[in-house]
Amino acid sequence: MSTVPRPWRTDMLTIHCPWCGPRDETEFSYGGEADIARPAAPDGLSDAAWADYLFMRTNPKGWHCEQWNHAHGCRRWFKAERHTVTYEIRVTWPMHREQP
């Protein structure tokens, strides 16, 4: 876990990889909304419930819990809480842990 200070005035994001520390945005790829669990029994789902899992997104204006991959670094996935207006990243943490 690492807490990230408010980004200083720059247009490039600095993202704290939980393993490698603060790195430049260009090293990462974006993995979209976090915590979308694949339904345990897809056969029993209605079309609408399946569509909800597959396509529907929260898309909030504000804090967003999301997935990132340190693609050009350690290549590990992690989660981040990022503000979708200021782009501030409040915290990042490894995929398998609870949000700190």
Binding site: A51, M56, R57, T58, N59, K61
Partner: peptide, 18 residues
């Protein structure tokens, strides 16, 4: 771009990302 915000006000979600 604010489709998701309006959908949230009306209590549903959309297959959209801004």
């Amino acid at each position: 771009g604010h489709a998701g915000v309006l959908a949230d006000m009306a209590g549903f979600r959309l297959p959209l990302e801004s």
